[in-house]
Design a protein around this nucleic acid. Structure first.
Lengths: 198, 198
DNA sequence: TCAAGAATTGTCCCATTGGTCAATTTACAA
DNA sequence: TTGTAAATTGACCAATGGGACAATTCTTGA
């Protein structure tokens, strides 16, 4: 860490975002009251509204943070990837990182998604997430496929990832990480040109 | 129609399920109050609780009905399908039936999904939906692929369908029917053995 | 040591909502 | 026509939750 110590404001905000997201996992958006978030964070309700303008803003930021985790999981792997194929694998494996690809997190994510149509802020975040995913995929696929094929494949992959996350949230005890990854690899292997030995 | 006229109870119940689902499209689960449902159906709140034990039961049945529509859309097409390939097309096209594959319906569906982790009744309905989908897909794929390949392909297809529906709900102005179907066809063509001319 | 600002708490208020119930209206069979 | 059961309404209740705010405690720099 270079420079200043972390300001208390930032600490509290982070704690509360985290608490909000964890309550969301258990209770869903409707059940995630400010009171519960405060209690879960070990504080009083007043504190929550001291650090966040209102409930909306709190959960908006909780969503931002949760997404940032996934984004970093991808970025981390992407940094070590050399070939397009490796970049593709990085994107996919990042999206199924074992730290995050878990039912409870999928529950929270699902609750957030349910609000997207009526909360422009959440919609914007979603749009950013999808745009980044698409752009990442395209940059990995372009060297391997024609433009049109790359575009289609990118759409298929991201829909597939979303679909598998959705099922993780819905069908408790359904498809878990290993099987999801196996499905993704299976899909990709059939879509990419044969690998040239090295 | 053979036999009795439709009982008033059944008419009202249907009207209210329908109204509930339509309010759900606009307002989401939290915003879909009994009052709004009643008003939308042109009745008073009391009526709703006269025909349904409580809010839970109302929306549970609304979900059942909405799903039945999609199920019928598939069944209808399935009835006219002769070959396995046609059966597969029937399943897919049914799931993107233009009457139902629409953003507002996807919104409602998404709201319901957000509640699934905390409402066993909804979870059961989801489980049935998925089971039927999987079974339909398997019966179409088994004649064309090995058991293991059929299983994987079925999982991929259903995840893909879910993912595309999810995006329809989230990303307003995103992938619409035609493109979704094109993606699905593209996916399938690459996975099935070449079609024997006829 | 002390003043000033930040952090934190607990209380209060108002709107909303699911659900109950008695009263009223409507439909229908005898 | 009339009496009974069903349909429908509207008033009411208790609980809840988001948010405002004044009061209190804690930090910190001079």
């Amino acid at each position: 860490m270079a420079g200043k110590l972390t300001k208390l404001v930032d600490i509290r905000r982070k704690e509360l975002r985290q608490a909000a997201f964890e309550v969301l996992q258990r209770e869903g958006m409707a059940g995630a009251t400010l009171e519960k978030v405060a209690t879960h964070a070990g504080a009083s309700k007043g504190i929550v509204l001291h650090y966040f303008r209102n409930k909306q803003e709190l959960f908006e930021q909780a969503m931002r943070e949760a997404n940032a985790n996934l984004r970093d999981a991808v970025a981390e792997r992407l940094r070590q990837a050399k070939t397009p194929r490796e970049r593709l694998a990085a994107i996919i494996e990042g999206n199924f990182d074992e730290r995050f690809y878990q039912p409870s997190i999928a529950h929270a994510w699902l609750s957030l998604c349910g609000e997207v149509p009526r909360e422009p802020q959440l919609a914007r975040i979603q749009a950013v997430i999808h745009a980044r995913m698409h752009s990442n995929l395209l940059s990995a696929l372009k060297p391997m496929l024609s433009d049109e094929e790359a575009r289609q494949t990118a759409h298929l992959i991201s829909a597939l990832i979303d679909g598998l996350w959705l099922r993780l949230g819905l069908h408790s005890g359904g498809i878990l990480r290993d099987e999801a990854l196996a499905l993704m690899r299976d899909f990709i292997d059939r879509r990419l040109p044969a690998e040239t030995g090295g």
